[in-house]
């Protein structure tokens, strides 16, 4: 399990940074690890930072949406933060506007919203 993506717990929020060179297997592993951590830590919030992703294809897009839904069912609100303009443009071009995901400009904004709603 050495090369899985690190998940940090800050206050009651799980922080995940997705690296640029992530493979499809790794991101599927993330789905599993993250859901276990949410339950294990009783986290109320998840922030997924995708700022280093230059390409988000339909697969990654779908997994991000799944992450949000799964976390939601486990009682944690998920924010996807730091999407690049080019990625956003490609996704709307593909008609994948991730309807189930909450988006935020930055980690700061996501944390501020989580705190405001008493989840962090």
């Amino acid at each position: 399990m050495a090369d899985t993506i690190s998940i940090y717990l800050v206050e009651q929020v799980l922080l995940v940074t997705i690296p640029d060179n992530i493979t499809d297997t790794e991101i599927v592993d993330l789905l599993e690890n993250l859901s276990e951590r949410i339950v294990g830590e009783a986290a109320r919030g998840v922030v997924i930072d995708i700022a280093s992703l230059e390409i988000v294809d339909t697969f990654v897009g779908r997994v991000l949406a799944q992450l949000s839904s799964v976390a939601g069912m486990l009682g944690a609100r998920t924010y996807v933060v730091g999407m690049r303009p080019a990625v956003a443009m490609t996704l709307v071009e593909l008609d994948m506007d991730l309807p189930g995901c909450r988006m935020a400009l930055s980690l700061t904004q996501a944390l501020r919203e989580l705190r405001r709603d008493g989840l962090a």
Partner: peptide, 12 residues
């Protein structure tokens, strides 16, 4: 609407 979607994806 597409532009609005892209803005939302950026977190705005």
């Amino acid at each position: 609407l597409r532009t609005a979607s892209a803005v939302r994806l950026m977190g705005g």
